[in-house]
């Protein structure tokens, strides 16, 4: 790691005053230290927000839930309210990375982690997302890359927390010294690579992600998240499914099918959702939704397997959410 100064901040106001001259914010530090050790990021100044106690904690509100950005993935995964009422968020945070990392990594940091493409993460490759013209993945090694909606960059959305929060219609709270607070939905937070290859989200350099707001799920909501990987632990998903079902007795009033490892930005499959809406949840409707989720898939040279994996992930996770199937033992732990 290169040498740097560290501004240790005890309040949000203090941290906001430090967001200038290329300083990079550090919370849990897991993703940032990885990038700095790889040599892809070489900041001369870090703003340490890890010790801002007001940014930690999970609070129930009349509208739903507010989670401080510094709340760790382990704290989210273990929270009794989240486990029972926002189940897919507990599932997603409880299966990210390793138990050790979940004790360190924050929910805000999980949402803001950078692409996990091995070309992007290597200091040896100067790719489209780093301001150059060439993507190496299209003609190179792309077995973990996107199968749809990729435009000029097929690196997949790395945050499993974002998959769950998209399904829950959650928003992030962005705070700046100049403009105060603004609320942006997860749907609008991330930018498609073609919109501007060098920007990943709408947060400005003088803004801090301070909280995550989640509306209270409608009565009769059931949800689940599962990810599939090459390893049982450690790894990012090669396929994942965040499912939310609003049930009227045995009929599905509204369905959300969210995916992360299919595309550069977390997405919902409206085709899969249509296959469930107004119908009972059965093996047949769940299978149909899984198949429908691959509408428009255009796999790359090495990842056609994902077109078979995603429908299975979605089918099994729909049944898990509906209480008709146990957690898949072959899903990543």
């Amino acid at each position: 790691m290169n040498s740097f100064t560290l501004a240790d901040c005890s309040t949000v106001e203090a941290a906001l005053s430090q967001l200038k001259d290329g300083a990079i914010v550090k919370a849990g530090g897991v993703d940032l230290l990885d990038r700095m050790k790889n040599g892809t990021d070489t900041p001369t100044r870090l703003v340490n927000i890890r010790n801002i106690s007001t940014l930690r904690g999970i609070h129930s509100t009349p509208q739903g839930l507010t989670i401080g950005a510094l709340t760790t993935l382990a704290e989210v995964a273990d929270d009794p309210t989240i486990r029972t009422q926002y189940t897919l968020l507990a599932d997603a945070c409880g299966h990210a990375a390793t138990p050790h990392i979940r004790n360190m990594a924050t929910l805000g940091g999980n949402l803001l982690q950078q692409l996990q493409c091995w070309y992007y993460r290597s200091a040896e490759f100067q790719c489209l997302r780093k301001g150059k013209e060439l993507c190496f993945a299209f003609s190179g090694l792309n077995q973990y890359h996107a199968i749809m909606d990729y435009g000029g960059c097929p690196s997949v959305a790395p945050s499993s927390g974002a998959v769950a929060l998209l399904a829950l219609d959650a928003s992030v709270e962005l705070t700046s010294a100049a403009k105060g607070k603004r609320i942006v939905t997860i749907r609008d937070f991330y930018l498609q690579p073609d919109a501007n290859p060098h920007r990943f989200h709408v947060m400005a350099a003088d803004e801090l992600l301070t909280a995550i707001h989640i509306p209270k799920p409608a009565p009769g909501t059931r949800s689940a998240y599962q990810k599939y990987g090459e390893k049982e632990s450690h790894d990012w998903a090669i396929a994942d499914a965040g499912i939310l079902l609003e049930m009227d007795s045995n009929l599905c009033r509204r369905a959300v099918v969210a995916m992360g490892a299919a595309s550069p930005v977390v997405r919902r499959s409206h085709e899969a959702e249509a296959a469930l809406t107004g119908k009972p949840i059965t093996h047949e409707t769940a299978r149909a939704a899984g198949q429908a989720s691959m509408t428009g898939a255009m796999p790359l040279s090495m990842n056609a397997y994902k077109v078979q994996l995603f429908p299975v992930a979605i089918y099994r996770t729909i049944l898990l959410a509906a209480g008709q199937m146990d957690r898949d033992p072959s899903a990543a732990g």
Partner: peptide, 11 residues
């Protein structure tokens, strides 16, 4: 000129 609530360390 370190402002209130900020402690600066290093390099």
């Amino acid at each position: 000129s370190t402002p209130k609530g900020v402690k600066e360390f290093g390099p």
